[in-house]
Design a protein around this nucleic acid. Sequence first.
DNA 1: CGTACAGTGTCTTACAGTAC
DNA 2: GTACTGTAAGACACTGTACG
Length: 381
Amino acid sequence: MPEYVEKASDMGPQFRVPMTRKRRAAAARRGNQGVASGTVRRHGWRRTSADEQLLEFAGAFGAITLRHAAEYFYGGVWETARKRVQFMREAGLLERSDNLRWAGTVVYPTASGMAAAAAPGLPELRALVPSEERMLHRLLVAEAALRMRARGVRVVAERQMRAVERANDSGQAAETFARFCGVAVAGSPAAGEFGVSVSPTVDGNGRARWFGVPVGMAGELHWPDFTAIVGGRIVAVEMEITHKERWRMLQVLRGYKLSIEAGHVAQVLWEVTPDVQMQLEGRRGADGWDDGLLADLGFLESGQVPDWSVKGRPMVVRAAQGRDEGVRYALSQKTLPPSLRCSYRLWRQWLQVWEQDASALEFEEWLMRPRTMTQLRAMSQ
DNA sequence: CGTACAGTGTCTTACAGTAC
DNA sequence: GTACTGTAAGACACTGTACG
């Protein structure tokens, strides 16, 4: 005797579909939503450690794309990523949005999902629906963090830093979290292992800051987009894709300079668009090299073309790049001159032509070369 | 009461196929 | 092209039973 399930339909009043194993499992997931979903049998799914890691990361960084999920959490297997995300959605742990075509599917945890990923030692975060305007920046940050994480580097999201620094103490909560993340706090195991010692920056009120970077006269805090803990030391990562006013940028750079001198931040890694790169590094002028802000502050030699092959500089600048195709597209649209901006679809066709061309140039440089557009127009006719 | 083991059902995964 | 569904194979967890 087969089981049936009643299903509403716009084709008629109701019709009955056989209760297959799939449908039973989906019904179980929907009937067992919440923090504990997937922890025991009969919930219609069992959560895996990859699922929990995804929830934790997406919660800390705000959102990731389904492509990121596949690449960094499910061994590059698209089908598995899609299925796991669907399970977590039915279980009420994850939400998805496909409002931004270029981003594909973007996923972020619900309040239950955040709670499910909570682990001892990690700061508690509230669920947040990511805003669409800031999505490119958010996904670029997440992607850079995922790449580092894949190399075994511990990363701390801005939200996590803010959460621990919000504590109403003189910095103990942040210090505890820094130790937990492997920062070489004096006397910690990491300090012994790596033979280094990291101390906090002291802000205007005499309070130790382990993650926030004090800037300006009033002593506000600047937050890196994320922090990587490399060999016990703190590397601040800044994903700058919008040109900041000079005074604002200087303020941030001066803040970092003090933190670096305090033995707090070991290095600042700037991943930037060409306009920001010029602001930081300077540019070729009529008679030699015109200094940028980094030379003004003594992070680069004055009047010289920056040489990034020198290792161990406290400030490093490199071009922001997306690996995810959609992220790459959105970034491309930001850096290309208006006349070369186009739809996602057309952009992908151009990218294919570039790949076949096996040009030594980067895609954007290739596109800006005068004869490329003529060539592309000729092909589309 | 504890252990070993077979039987059974549950869950994951990859592949093939379908809908829009 | 993207998202979803169905299926088969295998891994795994749970249950019941036999046995000491």
